[in-house]
Amino acid sequence: MAIRLEDVSTTYEGEKRPAIRDINLKVRSGELIAVIGPNGAGKTTLLETINGLLRSEGLVEVLGLDVRKYGREVRRRTGYVPQDFMVPSDTPFLAKDIVMMGRVGRIGLLKPPSKRDWEVVMAVMEQLGIADLADRPVGKLSGGQQQKVMIARALAKEPELLLLDEPFSSLDARSRETVCRLIADLRDDRSVTALVVTHDLSAMPEECDRAVLLNGGRITADGEPEEVFRSEAFLRAYGHIKVVRP
């Protein structure tokens, strides 16, 4: 089991009402799951509860480890792409250095990146079509290019789990397709588990095995995507909209 959440609630400091509550979720290794829901449903909170960036109540077991005790170990093995991550134009870091940061936990303490580490970094950047941007200052890149750099950072880790928060928000249709295919390949070839958060249902990867619908901080539907789209809970969350998947 890649993820096991039992009766999990996460409350932000100073807040009385939990952002997510009574969450029960089991994810098998190699599943590709879309986490959908309207704005403020708790999708980002769910991802940051899973990787232990947020403290929560209940059982959070990820990659066989209790996140409360072994959060850093889980995060070293988890690729995370945060929502809308943009940097100022004068940020003094090159794109390739940002991607290499994803491998820091894997390389370990007191060791510099090896030739293989750089090969992995360049291979991932190549796959995402940003190899020619490797030596460019990251702040000078467009929003979409910066988003690809952050996705490359997560993939360069060679993660066992991927948590992607709105990873397609700045990407064009072709780039989105490339990223979806990469994630699906990782699932098929290496049983990498992935949770992809999206509020835009048309951007939901068609390769998803399962959809989890969050609304008001609770999981209100969980199953095959088409099944979730036909559910009462989906109608309550989104109203009568027709989902056109790519």
């Binding site: 960036l53 995060r75 995370y80 940061m101 820091v104």
Partner: peptide, 12 residues
């Protein structure tokens, strides 16, 4: 670069 992203990568 970003302390929170570093934390998300398992760095203290």
């Amino acid at each position: 670069f970003d302390p929170r992203m570093a934390e998300a990568d398992g760095i203290n």
